[in-house]
Design a protein around this nucleic acid. Structure first.
Lengths: 146, 146
DNA sequence: TCTTAAACCTCTAGTTACTAGAGACATTAT
DNA sequence: ATAATGTCTCTAGTAACTAGAGGTTTAAGA
């Protein structure tokens, strides 16, 4: 049986994060020692590693919750799993495309800032110039998870 | 003079977002009509467009606050502006690299899921398999803004 | 066996950048 | 005059954690 600290170390997940996952129901409530400390078996390590790896791949917790649910029913066809992964792939591709545009705009900005005064700094100018945002009109600004 | 709604439309920023920017001090407190509604002039539109564009380029609000501060002092050298933009560029490049790795892993996963059972689904297996995460050990899982 | 340091516990609140909703007042158009 | 729309303030919610306070348990060393 592992304590929460060892579990965290094994899975490379911080202790408060594990408690948080338990709190939101991603991990089942842990057994407790006589002194009320959490104790974990092998299953918990697998599950937590799964979560961590999926998070690294950018899956949001909701998707991970679904995946975990599916992996508990191994006799089902795996279409659902597949489509979750595909959605994630699509999201990732979108983010890459956007970041590439962004990168070139930043490069242009930096290249043109030749150590002058703020007065004629291209960075400030580019950011202030509304004409530049033609292509991305409708897009909102909400943060997207990586 | 523009009402908050017109301003929002012109700058492509939602009304509550404008109020939020005022609240956190990114925009100065607006003039008010006799009936206490916010009124904005040309300057506000410029400033808000600047913010929106910078947000689109992935600058966090803190960086934008700095940039705005700098653009208010146009006689300074623009090293600071430049370094904010450079830092942003670096961050963006890092995110792109990471997302590309991620993308190929997801592609591999999806390609191998050939409509079988969850039981032998590669997606689930890859996510569960700890051996895959060799390269990215120390990395934490915190969300990163786009 | 005693002590003390490290690890654990719960709980609350903070983070980022907004978004949503309630209930009330203002403005504009018919 | 009235109805529709727009605006006001305020609170609370989102994702996915992180940080801190204040207290208990456990493991190791003397």
């Amino acid at each position: 049986m592992l304590t929460i600290g060892k579990l965290g170390k094994s899975a490379h997940v911080k202790v408060p994060t594990i408690r948080y996952y338990e709190q939101i129901g991603l991990l089942p409530e842990a057994e407790r020692s006589s002194g009320n400390q959490r104790l974990y078996g092998r299953g918990a390590l697998d599950r937590l590693s799964f979560i961590r790896h999926a998070r690294e791949l950018g899956f949001p917790l909701d998707a991970i919750r679904d995946l975990l649910g599916l992996s508990d029913r191994p006799d089902q066809p795996c279409d659902a799993v597949d489509s979750i992964a595909k959605a994630q792939l699509l999201a990732v591709e979108g983010r890459i495309a956007r970041l590439l545009t962004l990168k070139s705009e930043l490069e242009r900005m930096v290249a043109q800032c030749a150590g002058g005064r703020v007065e004629d700094c291209r960075v400030i100018e580019v950011l202030g110039n509304h004409a530049h945002c033609a292509a991305e009109h409708g897009r909102d600004l909400k943060q997207v998870s990586e």
